[in-house]
Simulated scan of single mutants.
Amino acid sequence: MTITVVVADDQELVRSGFALILDTQADISVVAEAGDGHAAIEAVRAYRPEVLLLDIRMPYMNGIDAAQVVCAETDTRVLMLTTFDQDDYIYGALRAGASGFLLKDVRRDDLVHAVRVVAAGEALLAPAVTRRLIDDMVSKRPRKPHVGLDLLTARERETLMLLGRGLSNAEIAAAFVVSEHTVKTHVSNVFAKLAVRDRVQAVIAAYESGLIRPGG
């Protein structure tokens, strides 16, 4: 199955370079390019790609604002690109609904891998990096309730806690002594009840509500 991608970056050479790299892959097809946030949104609305490769700093509308619109309106998964690895950019992108974050000096193979990972429904950041980042960001912000947490069963809460520790579905299945299919059902239920798109969004909600404590 081919993964459809829209590439959005205000620098034409960068945009074209990423598009060329991705288009050479047998399982990836770049269906459109965009030079600003507004154009990125319109391209997603027109082509409904599986992945939007989106620069954070662009004219007219920045990538984080564009990601919020795309994630609210569509099922397209957003992979953010930037030359800046500042915490606020990363956290802003994740809070907007992005499923991954890469610096523009990413290696060719890592870019391709990132698109495949995000398209498969996983968060791009490695578990240890995800936990460290969320620990740091959430510890600086006040707790806030998340209504969806009250809807989780005891097993779904346990699943969410293990997601927060960075465990994969296979590792959670081993911990619960159940099938991986059963874990996938638990994870899907967590996403649905919390109204989130992926693991990172679910874990952020758990940290912000206090279910998971930074450093715990």
Rank of each mutant, 00 (worst) to 15 (best):
D88Q: 14
L79C: 06
F18E: 10
A8K: 00
Q86D: 14
V30D: 04
G100N: 05
G35P: 00
L102I: 04
T159E: 04
D9G: 02
R15P: 07
D55M: 08
V115T: 11
V177H: 05
D150M: 13
D150H: 07
P49T: 03
Y91F: 11
R48E: 12
V147T: 14
A154C: 00
H181M: 11
F18N: 01
D110S: 09
G35W: 11
A8E: 00
Y47C: 00
R15K: 05
H181Y: 14
Q86Y: 07
D55L: 04
D87P: 09
D55S: 04
D135C: 05
L162T: 02
E12P: 09
R199S: 14
A120E: 14
T153K: 06
G215W: 10
A114D: 04
G100Y: 06
V51G: 01
V30H: 01
R15M: 11
P142N: 07
A174H: 08
L79K: 03
I56D: 02
V200Q: 08
T159N: 09
V147W: 12
A126M: 10
L151Q: 12
R155F: 13
L124K: 08
V196E: 10
R157W: 04
D65N: 11
G92I: 10
V147F: 09
L54V: 08
I134F: 13
Y47T: 04
A93H: 05
R131L: 08
L102C: 03
R15S: 13
M1L: 08
Y60S: 09
V112H: 07
L111S: 11
Y91W: 13
D27H: 09
A66Q: 07
E122V: 03
G148F: 08
